[in-house]
Write a protein that binds this DNA or RNA. Sequence first.
DNA 1: AAAGGCGAGTGACTCTGGTCACATGCGCCG
DNA 2: CGGCGCATGTGACCAGAGTCACTCGCCTTT
Lengths: 233, 233
Amino acid sequence: MVVTPELLSFFPLLKLLPASSLLALVQASTVEKFARRAVVLNAGQHEHNVCFLFEGRLQGVDFTVDGREVGLFFVEPGDVCGEIALFDRGVQPEYIIVLSPAVVVWVPLENLRAAMLECPPLVSNLGMRLAQRIRQLTLQRSLLGMPNIAQRVCCQLWLLVEEHEKAHMKEGVIKNPPTHMEIAIMLNLSRETVTRVFQTLQQQDVVRRDGASRLQLPSLSLLKAYADGSREL
Amino acid sequence: MVVTPELLSFFPLLKLLPASSLLALVQASTVEKFARRAVVLNAGQHEHNVCFLFEGRLQGVDFTVDGREVGLFFVEPGDVCGEIALFDRGVQPEYIIVLSPAVVVWVPLENLRAAMLECPPLVSNLGMRLAQRIRQLTLQRSLLGMPNIAQRVCCQLWLLVEEHEKAHMKEGVIKNPPTHMEIAIMLNLSRETVTRVFQTLQQQDVVRRDGASRLQLPSLSLLKAYADGSREL
DNA sequence: AAAGGCGAGTGACTCTGGTCACATGCGCCG
DNA sequence: CGGCGCATGTGACCAGAGTCACTCGCCTTT
């Protein structure tokens, strides 16, 4: 696949750029495909490209000194990662790995940085992204403080529900739900513990499996009650 | 106390501003004193001021849904907090509370935002701050993944050592060390557990108390070994 | 069809870290 | 100087989560 202006315009962030800057980036950008489990960005490295996800699904993870995996966030098509270095040219804070086979567009860091400095809306948008990321990290951190395990899992599930579904509080659905293992590493739990919580939730009909790629949530209000602790498993 | 240009120039961030902008901010800014345990910024609120710490010590904390406290980071004199809203006018992500009696300079959010938009170096510096914050949050998160408790405490201590002291790896010192309770909430532990780890560390002469405001670390290399898991307690 | 990998489900055992309930020590302030 | 508040120190107890060692079912690959 070859990089075209249309391809770059797929990304909301790059749409903010004037046509001339966009064209300049097209020249320098490349496309790459990744298989499941591949490493897209390396923690601790000075990456020379910003990663735009076109297709597939990525995850930000970290590893503790003793080799244990720590889940941080998911990346969906249209999202960016590795953009932090645009601000401080620092090292990549976490690993980005592939959950489902991915197509990535690489835009060289320095080119994008140059374009950004001449495009205030882009700076502003990226600033908002970082701000959002900090909020998300803070929230995730507060999840880990919860002593009740089941509550932790329910909160995480609640976070995965689309905003507009939360509004009317009836049933919801999580597309491409994370595996038990993936939830476990995000919540500092063992995979078995997550499985056991899911078993209980299924008995209460709070969650229902619907093939591998969908998780039904028949009663959002019940899920919410477990999540905020007003009800216990 | 009254706000003067000299006072604002105490803060590295504001020193980047041209004199004219600084003068405009002086008019709008105020000073406030806070007692220990006071709440300076409220999570979830749209704060109308950015907080510059002149004196004392603050901490960013969050609370889980069940009321448990979660420690996030410390704020030292010269630092800023509540600056995230400059980028997206969003709500404050965490509470900022007072650890030791503090003097705070309030700069109205919108005034600073206006000044920032006309001063690229300030945008750049703030962007670097956010980036740094994300790195710090990610690192802190990875600490929580460690199954070995003592290691977690040692890593946290290691993070509190000054960079230049880490370099020669001899003895180090932590000024104004956090209390056991404060360490506990940062690491998702109980206060008693932290005390017990400290007891063991003191027996090994890895840490030594030196009054309330100093913590001696006679052997940084040993601390490092415990922190990276190459040695176990 | 066989084989292999992977996600999920389950039981038994272990043991760590939270909780509770104290004691101690220190500094501050009226 | 006495008393209070706060940080620290310590032991006993035990619930709850991790670990291990499986099985089962569903895919993709050979």
